[in-house]
């Protein structure tokens, strides 16, 4: 039990890092209604860029900014593939993601790179989890504040409208293609930022660190939405819910590890959990509509 509680601060900080990533995913998945698979690659791009710059002696904050911009560039590529070349969004994301695997290898020069807290001025490290949690909460708070402001602006509103009703948006003179590209850039910028944080926290960047990232992001979103469905009407509160969704995910992960379940199974479990959360509302609509309930009742009475 002691082991479990000892591991909790680590789980919370990891959860916060992935929660920031999930907020990025939220922008495409929920606001733009696009399933963007670029993130599996762009999270590693962020980590790689940050690691290489910091190794070269660049200030950590500048490195993180560059990582964020690199992520935005990944989003730009997916956005252009989707809007200019009319490739379905999901496929455009897969193409970028695949290309990023090579690019990430080239950025790092090898499959993984150390970023030791002993040699570099990292802003968070798993050696000091309490400090890391404090720093991460501040960063996440700033991001949520910034997004809350942005999606309340004219441009932000038009991006929300684009995701909500594309026909109406065009009829109201909104450049929907541009907005999709912008949304993808912001989303992947945040994802890359979380990658940069993750590399500092765990002390290395690895070319495989993004595998399945989209599923973890979606898991955080569905957990956050389910847990905070009742109170989360305000946009900022909903983003906080997503952030906490990431934390809950990693705390549960830690408990599973503590219970001794084979960690090789965790990715499968994550996929199952996300499938259930995404699928159940649809099943409800299909089989538990008023008509089917009525029919079921009639069938029961006749029997």
């Amino acid at each position: 039990m002691e082991h479990l509680f000892g591991a909790l601060p680590g789980a919370v900080s990891l959860g916060l890092i992935w929660g920031i990533m999930a907020i990025g995913v939220y922008i495409t998945f929920k606001i733009l209604a696009i399933s963007d698979l670029t993130v599996d690659g762009s999270i590693c791009t962020g980590a790689a860029v940050c690691t290489m710059l910091m190794t070269a002696g660049v200030d950590p904050w500048v490195s993180m900014l560059c990582a964020t911009l690199a992520g935005g560039l990944c989003g730009l590529v997916t956005g252009l593939l989707h809007t200019v070349l009319d490739i379905p969004a999901i496929l455009a994301g897969i193409l970028t993601q695949l290309a990023l695997w090579s690019i990430n290898l080239k950025i790092m020069g090898q499959a993984n790179r150390p970023l030791s807290a002993r040699n570099f001025p990292v802003i968070i490290t798993q050696m000091k989890t309490e400090e890391a949690i404090f720093t991460l909460v501040l960063i996440a708070g700033a991001i949520i504040g910034l997004l809350y402001w942005f999606f309340g602006t004219e441009l932000g509103c038009s991006i929300r409208a684009t995701g909500c009703n594309i026909n109406m948006s065009r009829a109201q003179g909104i450049n929907t293609e541009l907005n999709k590209v912008l949304g993808l850039m912001i989303s992947n910028g945040l994802v890359a930022l979380s990658g940069a944080l993750l590399a500092q926290y765990q002390g290395f960047a690895d070319v495989n660190m993004g595998r399945g990232a989209i599923v973890i992001g979606l898991a955080a979103i569905v957990i956050g939405e389910t847990a905070f469905a009742k109170i989360a009407r305000n946009f900022a509160v909903r983003l906080c819910g997503v952030l906490l969704g990431g934390v809950i995910y990693y705390v549960v992960y830690q408990v599973i590890v503590f219970l001794g379940i084979d960690t090789d199974l965790l990715k499968m479990l994550s996929a199952v959990v996300v499938a259930i959360f995404l699928g159940v509302p649809n099943l409800k609509k299909k089989y538990f509509s008023k008509v089917s309930k009525k029919r079921a009742k009639e069938a029961g009475e006749n029997a």
Partner: peptide
């Protein structure tokens, strides 16, 4: 009100001023 605000800005540049 947000829908109306979107329509009011039809044909105008949408910048970083408040959406409404």
């Amino acid at each position: 009100q947000e829908n109306l605000a979107l329509a009011k800005r039809r044909g105008k540049k949408r910048g970083l001023g408040w959406g409404i």
